[in-house]
Design a binder for these strands. Structure first.
Lengths: 240, 240
DNA sequence: CGATAAAATAGAACAGTGTTCGATAAATCG
DNA sequence: CGATTTATCGAACACTGTTCTATTTTATCG
């Protein structure tokens, strides 16, 4: 009745001399298939039926490994974050704020080109074990700054909030016309900036000041620049 | 469900006086109804049928005012942000960073108790006029710091990213069991912290350091504390 | 071994969704 | 008044997540 939603790998299915008349999955293969679909066609493209078809089985089989679509998305996001955990496994021996920066950038990179990820990352740590560990790892760097528990908690939340918020914003699912390929990404951006240029300069001085920057900006640079603002403020507080 | 008047004989033109046999809407009433439903039952509760029923008309009528559900959500979110725009109308004559703080907090307050808002705010400025103006207003405060266009753009994006990211995170739609009322919010939180407390202290020192803070924390305080970190870093850069 | 229980798989059906279509009523205007 | 535009609405379509039940495969154990 209860599906093994936590971590347990179902007993190995890979053996058998007889030809299978039924498909055979595992939590890992289900999540891998989900991530594939998500990467290809976004969160909207991940339907239970599409996933079942990719796995070569029936729809209902997915529900053996996952309680529903929501948990599927949470776990798929969490599985990707496992990669970030590995990438940053050895971080933690340098300057605390430098280490914080390293982890944050790694996290950003993971989310940046996965538009679907932002919305499901660090949502339900009860079922997202990798997310929890990543949160812990970030918190540990902040701990080394010697602040109070309260300050440590707030600073960690601020960093996580900035990273996920900015990454989610930048990795936003493009409109369907772009996904479908009817309009190229460049055309779409050109039209957006054109619309901004048409705004009244007296009413929108800021937009007009930064429009050229916007038109040719790099998301990653922008993210890191903002992150450094936050970390500068944090360093200031730590040295007080 | 039924039409307000005279559903029995739709085509009968009632002798002396005309009887309205059809509902009549407007974009404003459609968005207002949408916001009502969103406030009551979250993004998942906003279905076209539920909205049409509240407006007392047919489903298809909604599509006269809005291209689809996606645009409906974008516009509903934008209409709420109009309130923030009014609240902060007179901001802009004090210390730039203080003003930035004021606007950010106003924006946070608007999103905080509207779990659905976070995901749709500042998404499609092409159709979200209030969002665009709010973005402009934030940018104008940053402009006053006398940074380069590039720095101004990055700093503005950082503030917006932090505010929306943190607010969206904090205003997350609670699990269905909480929404439905099967489990109270306190019980849910108690269970979550209990699960954290059960973690190995050697492996999760950070979690154990902050668990008491987490259990009794106030979202708003936490948000403002983190915001001040970011603004401190910004002030540092401005004075350089 | 073989029987019995448990773990997995899958087809079909259910209730609900966003959206489109065509008909039609109401408002507008010459 | 008639003609045209604006707005409303029921019905239908294609698709969704999910559940039910039956069935197959694997593990357990006397």
């Amino acid at each position: 009745m209860a599906a093994p939603t936590g971590q347990g790998a179902p007993t190995s299915p890979a053996r058998g001399r007889r030809v299978r008349s039924r498909a055979s999955h595992s939590l890992e293969s289900v999540l891998a298939g989900a991530v594939e679909i998500l990467d290809e066609s976004g969160a909207q493209g991940l339907t239970i039926r599409a996933l079942a078809a990719r796995l070569g089985g029936g729809n209902a089989s997915v529900y053996w490994y996952v309680s529903g679509r929501e948990e599927l998305l949470d776990l798929a996001a969490d599985s990707v974050l496992g990669g970030v955990l590995e990438t940053t496994a050895d971080v933690g021996s340098g300057d605390p704020i430098d280490d914080l920066r390293t982890i944050s950038v790694a996290m950003f990179d993971a989310i940046a080109d996965r538009p679907w990820l932002g919305a499901y990352v660090l949502r339900q740590t009860a079922r997202q074990i990798h997310s929890l560990r990543l949160y812990e790892r970030i918190g540990q760097q902040v701990m080394r700054l010697g602040l109070t528990p309260r300050q440590t908690f707030h600073a960690t939340s601020a960093v996580v909030g900035y990273v996920t918020g900015t990454a989610a914003d930048m990795g936003q699912e493009p409109p369907e016309v772009v996904v479908s390929g009817a309009v190229s990404r460049e055309e779409y951006l050109a039209e957006a900036t054109a619309q901004w240029r048409a705004l009244d300069p007296d009413e929108f001085p800021y937009i007009h000041l930064i429009i050229d920057e916007f038109a040719g900006h790099d998301d990653r640079d922008q993210f890191i620049d903002g992150l450094d603002l936050l970390l500068a403020g944090l360093r200031l507080r730590a040295n007080r």
